Simulated assay, not measured.
Amino acid sequence: MGEIRQRFTDEFKEQTVRYIQEQTKTIPQIAEELSIPAGTLQRWMSTHRKFENEPLLDREAIRQKDKQIHDQELEIEDLKEEIAILKKAMHIFSKERN
Rank of each mutant, 00 (worst) to 15 (best):
A84P: 00
E73N: 10
E3R: 13
E73G: 05
T26F: 07
T24Y: 02
T40N: 00
E11P: 01
W44F: 05
M90T: 07
H91P: 00
F93D: 03
E11K: 07
K87V: 13
K13F: 02
I27A: 11
K95N: 08
F12L: 09
Q72K: 11
E75M: 14
P28I: 03
V17F: 09
I85Q: 08
E81D: 08
Q23S: 15
M90N: 11
E54H: 08
A61L: 03
E3P: 03
E52L: 12
T24Q: 08
I30A: 02
T47Q: 06
H91N: 13
D71E: 14
F12C: 01
D10S: 07
Q42T: 09
R7Q: 05
K95V: 06
E54C: 14
A89H: 04
R7I: 13
R7F: 06
F8L: 04
I62V: 13
I69D: 07
F12V: 08
K65G: 01
D10W: 01
A61D: 07
D66C: 15
A61E: 11
E54Y: 09
I85F: 03
Q23T: 14
P37K: 04
R63S: 10
K88L: 15
I62A: 04
S35C: 10
L79I: 13
E33I: 03
G39C: 01
M45S: 10
Q23I: 02
F51P: 10
Q29N: 12
D58Y: 05
T24L: 11
H91Q: 12
L74E: 11
P55C: 06
Y19Q: 09
T47V: 02
E75S: 12
F93W: 05
V17H: 06
K87Q: 14
E73I: 15
Y19H: 13
E75A: 14
I27Q: 08
P55W: 04
R7A: 04
E73A: 11
